[in-house]
C-alpha cells in the first residue's frame, strides 16, 4: 500500500508537469490548429533562464515569476516575428518552422549553458511533511503549484474580458474581428501564455530530472499524449489527460516489470497512436468535422 501511494504521488507530480505542457499545447492548438513541437524546448530554455537568475542570487519565487514573465514576452515575440510569416501557408511549412525553432533553442541552450547536467534547486524542504513516508515535499509542492497555476489560467479565461476575447478569437476569427478584437495579438498572447505555462513545467520538473538541453523532449511527448487523451480541443480535458498520463506512466513503470524505465516512452508512443487512430477526439474533446 505504501509503495502504491509513493508511486501514485510521484505520478501525480509528474502528471502536474505534463498537464502544464498539455495545456500549453492545447492553448496554441485551439487558437491556430498548430501543434507546437518547440514547446518543450521553449520550456527548457525558460528553465535555463530561471537557473541563471537563481545563480545570480534572485530569490526562488521571484525567479519563478520573472521567468514566467520573460517567457511570456518571448512567446509573444516568437509568434509575431517567426511564426506569423508562415501562418496559414501549409501544415508542412508550419511544422518545419516549429522544428527549426526546436533545434535552435536546443542548440542555443547547449551553446550558452553547455551540455553538462546541472542540479536545479527546489523551494520545498527536503524532509517529508509530517514525517510521512509516501510523498516527498517537492512532489507535493509540484502538485500544489501546478494546480494553482492551472486554476489561475482557468479564472483568466473564464472571467476576464481578455480571456473571453482570446476564446472568441480562437473559435471564430472573422466574427472576433467584427467586434473589434485584434485577433493577431490574441494569437500572440496565446503563445505568450503557453510559453509561461511551459516555463512553470520546466522549473518544477528540473529538480527531479536535472537541467540539461534535452530534458524536455520526453516530457513534451507525455504532454502531447495527455492532451490527446483528454481531448486536444478541451483545455480541462487536456489537464486531466496530463495527470492521467503521469499516474499511468509511473504505475506502469513500477508494476509492469518488463517495461521498466526504457519502454515508458514506447508506452507514450503507443498511447498517442492508439488515441489518434481509435478516438481522435480524446476522452472529452469535440469531434472535429473535417471540411473538405
Amino acid at each position: 500500500m505504501e509503495f502504491f501511494l509513493q508511486q501514485l504521488f510521484s505520478g501525480l507530480a509528474f502528471g502536474g508537469v505534463y498537464a502544464c505542457m498539455a495545456l500549453a499545447v492545447v492553448m496554441i492548438y485551439q487558437a491556430t490548429d498548430h501543434l507546437n513541437f518547440a514547446q518543450g524546448e521553449m520550456a527548457m530554455f525558460s528553465t535555463y533562464i530561471a537557473y541563471t537568475l537563481i545563480s545570480h542570487g534572485v530569490p526562488y519565487w521571484w525567479t519563478f515569476l520573472l521567468a514566467m514573465a520573460i517567457s511570456f514576452v518571448g512567446g509573444v515575440m516568437i509568434e509575431r516575428i517567426i511564426v506569423r510569416p508562415v501562418e496559414g501557408t501549409s501544415v508542412l511549412n508550419e511544422v518545419i518552422v516549429f522544428i527549426g525553432l526546436l533545434t535552435i533553442f536546443n542548440s542555443l541552450a547547449g551553446w550558452i549553458w553547455e551540455y553538462t547536467i546541472k542540479p536545479f534547486p527546489s523551494p520545498f524542504p527536503k524532509d517529508p511533511l509530517f514525517g510521512n513516508t509516501f510523498v516527498g515535499t517537492h512532489d507535493l509542492g509540484v502538485i500544489g503549484v501546478t494546480l494553482v497555476v492551472l486554476f489561475g489560467v482557468f479564472l483568466f479565461f473564464r472571467y476576464t474580458p481578455i480571456g473571453l476575447a482570446m476564446r472568441a478569437a480562437a473559435q471564430d476569427p472573422a466574427s472576433a474581428r467584427l467586434v473589434g478584437i485584434r485577433v493577431g495579438w490574441m494569437l500572440a498572447l496565446g503563445w505568450g501564455l503557453a510559453a509561461a505555462i511551459g516555463a512553470v513545467a520546466g522549473i518544477l520538473v528540473a529538480p527531479i530530472v536535472f537541467l540539461e538541453p534535452n530534458m524536455m523532449g520526453s516530457i513534451l511527448l507525455y504532454g502531447f499524449a495527455g492532451a490527446l487523451l483528454g481531448g486536444i480541443t478541451n483545455p480541462a480535458g487536456a489537464v486531466f489527460g496530463g495527470f492521467a498520463v503521469g499516474v499511468l506512466e509511473t504505475l506502469i513503470g513500477a508494476y509492469v516489470s518488463f517495461i521498466g524505465s526504457e519502454l515508458k516512452l514506447t508506452v507514450a508512443l503507443v498511447l498517442i497512436i492508439a488515441v489518434l487512430v481509435f478516438r481522435p477526439s480524446g476522452l472529452f474533446g469535440r469531434v472535429v468535422v473535417k471540411r473538405v
Binding site: V97, I104, N106, S107, L108, G110, W111, Y115
Partner: peptide, 16 residues
Amino acid sequence: KAAPWAVYGTLLILCM
C-alpha cells in the same frame, strides 16, 4: 559544438 544545430534550425526557417 552546438552551432551546427543552430545553423540547421536557422536554415530550416529561412528556407521556409
